[in-house]
Design a protein around this nucleic acid. Structure first.
Lengths: 219, 219
DNA sequence: CCACCCGCGTCAGCCTGGTGTCAGGCAGAC
DNA sequence: GTCTGCCTGACACCAGGCTGACGCGGGTGG
């Protein structure tokens, strides 16, 4: 996903850029509206992060201009706390979301994910479960906006839970699901994989029902 | 649908509660944030109605805390007309909607319906028995809407009663059901488990028939 | 062809919570 | 009252679950 960051504060800008990069997205960072215009002519962005106070004009006008030209690229506004009217005006002008400075970078990731999902061409269906966002088709899981890499076994196990959310699954059922007929297994493998899944996805994702089995926890 | 109402104004709170009840939903009403936290730990709510000014803190912080923990339960904020910045901050903190006081109760119903519709899934068949809602497939029991956790033995016992509602079951029969053949038991185990079940599900669920046994009480 | 890494199954030791047992108290039957 | 059966708080034990560690094996890169 290509993101255009328009922000003149160098400290904040760098932080945002690094955060997005860490999330595995690519960012172009400009500090002026005219540079933003140039960048947009050169590249089709999937998302724009827009500061409202910039050296060469107010972001609101820029946003209005975009929308007037029929540009639908989602825009998230970055504003200072006291600019209440700006935020309202921003939403009216066609922004998709806003973040109040100072904001948590994890929250930024989440918003980006959420806005992007709403607009991406034909998105894979995403299942969200608490802090997790699961793309079944792509076999990928995000936790707090960060991609978590699951191994084959871990994914198979997780999938079994997702297929029946909230339902109790015995270890026997799970083994059956993971080891079709052939190579049986005779140890606490399931326990171990559950443990590894919890480590990656968070302890609360899978609940233990003593003597009965496991279940996907409530979101 | 289970709704948690967090509102310290007793007049408004009662009105909202009655309105929701009239819509056929169930409500838990608390007046403080710490009580809200307790309630949420005990029950999985489908929707939260949150007042922003409360005796033990501001609702915004509470909401932010929820979202930070990855809690996705939809939240509708209730605010006074003049607290514009609160509303914005609320949406920013992850609220799904807001209502300005004083609001029309019919509008409240409408908003609840709309938010609920967005989040509804497809649940398992539920057996209700008095204040209890039993999801046999998921092995879960709700009492007055609160999820009750049963241990393996407790569930087995309860299941025995559910299989023959209203029928008298002697302790011998129950023991047989709980301890297949092997490891017999020679104390008042059944009595103890019945006692534990009553504690969790309510005293009236299981009736004692002196000298004969137990039976599932009338709803 | 070797060196390395990574996924996975196995094991062992620790820890937790469910369970059986008991004792003292309560309540119903007569 | 007395007797009997039931209730329930307390407690200790241990099956069951958790998890760090290890080694095998297959895959990858040099």
């Amino acid at each position: 996903m290509r993101i255009l960051l328009i922000e003149d504060d160098t400290v904040l800008g760098a932080a945002v850029r690094d955060q997005i990069a860490a999330d595995g997205q690519s960012v172009d960072w400009v500090t002026r509206l005219d540079a933003a215009g140039d960048a947009m002519r050169a590249t089709a962005y999937d998302l724009i992060l827009l500061d409202l106070m910039l050296p060469d004009g107010r972001g609101i006008g820029f946003l209005k201009g975009l929308r007037a030209r029929g540009e639908v690229t989602p825009v998230i506004i970055l504003t200072a706390l006291d600019q209440v009217s700006d935020r309202i005006e921003g939403l009216n002008a066609g922004a998709d979301d806003y973040l109040v400075k100072p904001f948590d970078l994890a929250e930024l990731s989440a918003r980006i994910g959420s806005v992007a999902r709403r607009y991406s061409g034909n998105p894979n269906p995403i299942v969200t479960h608490g802090p997790l966002e699961i793309d079944l088709a792509a076999r990928s899981v995000q936790r707090d906006g960060r991609t978590v890499l699951l191994t084959a076994r871990e994914w198979a196990l997780f999938e079994a839970f997702l297929a029946r959310p909230g339902q109790l699954l015995s270890k026997a059922q799970l083994e059956e699901k993971l080891y079709a007929f052939d190579n049986e297994v005779e140890s606490n493998t399931i326990e171990v994989h559950v443990s590894r899944l919890r480590k990656k996805l968070g302890a609360r994702v899978i609940e233990t029902e003593r003597g009965l089995g496991y279940r996907l926890g409530r979101a």
